[in-house]
Write a protein that binds this DNA or RNA. Structure first.
Lengths: 365, 365
DNA sequence: GTGAAAGCGCTAACAC
DNA sequence: GTGTTAGCGCTTTCAC
């Protein structure tokens, strides 16, 4: 048994006394090989510890069965859930998956440029990322199949949710509970990155909130909207601002569960009880949301990645993928962080009444 | 401008009136090309929208500048942090990174087997995974450079922390605060997966706890140790058991922050105040820990992935990587979830005194 | 059934 | 400087 490094199909052919064509047939399980020949070749392969060269196979076949995923901020729970959903589908179908994390616009451009090289990846999935017309054009010109997730791109198959409707759902949930002053905590769009189709999902969710407020005849108070960098710390600071207002909101809608977590922390620090003094609703339904009893708008994160992967696979099989725009369902999940505002305690929706908030708990430590 | 698909280096050479060797030199920025020639070739490349075939280049060079990372349970915060650390280093050095998520032993074996194929990846990083001698052997025989992270493997460069010491640190922190009855919540080793070198990190942390208890002359009460599946829900259930004991612990050490989160939730549900009635310390220092005011043993997760990547790169450059065993530092981060047990309030180490626990807060909703 | 040979698209060594 | 050629290690006709 020698090192499989440097052992080629020719070595196997030589040692088995057959041609390399036959060895190739054996490797690929072609039918037209005599049983005895097959056995002999397999034995030699075993003895020589022969492993086919993936590169040679791929070059010869013209495909490496590799796809690439471009995803921003991979450490965020929503991103990693999507990624995991896609990885599972792709692995099951025998695709290797290159993961390109991007935290800056220049990283994004670099990765996208690299992926339009010939034979780099059979196809590409782009998630939650601003894609310029130029980007789209280079993929088209390079003839690299592309699908997107959490991002609408014209003439490219995309899997999304209706963020505006999601914002509306969150708002309607709070409105139904009797809230009239509803604050919003969301992302300040960073130049270039994290924007999708001209607006971020945070921005669209805010739009949905405003829609609902107007529809309810309440109108929008811009002073209740705060935008800042993503992340719990920033959300906490912004929520603290809202809670310090003389006429503070009775409810806050956060554009993501991560930010909602920050809102809970802020309420805590200020001794504001949730949900008695403040209702909070987030977006995404990431794992910790359930533990924190956070009401939220759930979107199928893993499933979105899985669907993106399935659609890319279909594309790679040469199928047409229709409809181009796939919209996944969302729903409100009510937990303990949302309830009727003070003075409207009739028919309280939450399970119990007199408790300290997560927030005051946090402050305690 | 035609599709770059199917345009080869020969086409460029033909259209520029030069040989393919010259085109190759231009592409790779070789010095010995006349300026005029270079310009002409570059213009044609532009016009034809030529993109070199990655597969052809890689096959010819014998390397694809691709590495693979095998990581279990990629959605866990600790895993994704490590992954992100590695991705950043690898991207910066021009390596594409294949990510193989594994949730079962069979997925692990499948991925590891695939990665020992010739030319699949230039090198492999395995994280937090049980690696059998057979696995090690096949990598060695296949001549595929291998490093591990959060996993000791003999004769393979590995980046780890001292989990036993970490357990000891956590214990000593609690002991110093005056705790004597210290519970432990950890993973029940799942057959095959998630075990490293015969024992899981959870198991080693527990061993460290026991060491410290014995060293303190307190001894070990096995009834205070609970093992179960990873995840906050399971941890919550186990913690609830501990807290229901007649002589319940005054402190609980959880093998991970994720599990510690479950402990906090359990305390909440039972109306046990943290840290007054119960101190909690976790392990890892993942992002939410700070928000939850969770005391913890911090380990450099991103850095561990980055170091693994750096060491693999060194290996790929042909350098010897020494020492084989790289141990990263850990430290206790005290936050609000740990304090003196009731009746020992003198010189309390935590910031404030009379607060409700996260736990009671959670119950409230 | 099986062997020989022509690609796949590039790099690199070698001539000129 | 630049063109030519021999690989890199497979798959896949096409004869036999």
């Amino acid at each position: 048994m020698q090192a499989s490094d440097r052992v080629t199909i020719a070595d196997v052919a030589g040692a088995s006394g057959v041609g390399i064509g036959t060895v190739s047939r054996v490797i690929n399980g072609a039918a037209n090989v005599r049983q005895a020949t097959r056995a002999k070749v397999l034995k030699v392969i075993e003895q020589l510890a022969y492993r086919p060269s993936h590169l040679a196979t791929a070059l010869s076949r013209g495909t490496s069965r590799t796809v690439a995923i471009v995803v921003p901020h991979v450490t965020r729970p929503s991103a990693v859930e999507r990624l995991a959903g896609a990885l599972a589908v792709l692995a099951e179908r025998g695709y290797a998956t290159i993961v390109c994390n991007v935290d800056t616009a220049s990283q994004r451009d670099q990765h996208l440029a690299a992926l339009t090289a010939r034979h780099r990846a059979d196809g590409v999935i782009v998630m939650s990322l601003a894609l310029s017309p130029d980007h789209l054009t280079s993929f088209r010109r390079a003839n690299v199949p592309l699908v997107t997730v959490d991002l609408a791109a014209r003439s490219v198959p995309h899997t999304v949710i209706d963020d505006v409707a999601g914002g509306r759902l969150a708002a309607e949930h709070l409105l139904a509970l009797g809230h009239a002053r509803i604050g919003f905590i969301g992302d300040r769009a960073r130049r270039g990155l994290a924007a999708t189709g001209g607006s971020t999902s945070s921005e669209r969710r805010r739009a949905g909130l405003y829609d609902a407020l107007r529809a309810a005849g309440i109108g929008v108070d811009p002073s209740l909207t705060r935008l800042g960098p993503h992340g719990p710390a920033s959300a906490e600071a912004m929520a603290a601002e809202l809670l310090a207002m003389p006429d503070r909101p009775t409810a806050i809608f956060a554009a993501s569960d991560t930010q909602a977590t920050g809102v809970l922390a802020a309420a805590d620090r200020l001794g504001v009880r949730v949900p008695q003094d403040l209702s909070v609703i987030g977006f995404d339904d990431i794992e910790p949301a359930s533990l924190l009893r956070l009401s939220t708008v759930r979107q199928p994160l893993q499933e979105s990645g899985a669907e993106g992967a399935r659609r890319l696979c279909a594309l790679l099989r040469g199928e047409r993928v229709l409809p181009l725009r796939q919209v996944l369902p969302i729903e409100v999940v009510q937990r303990g962080s949302s309830g009727r505002p003070a003075g409207q305690s009739r028919q309280t929706s939450c399970r119990s009444g007199s408790h300290s908030s997560l927030n005051s708990a946090l402050e305690a430590r």
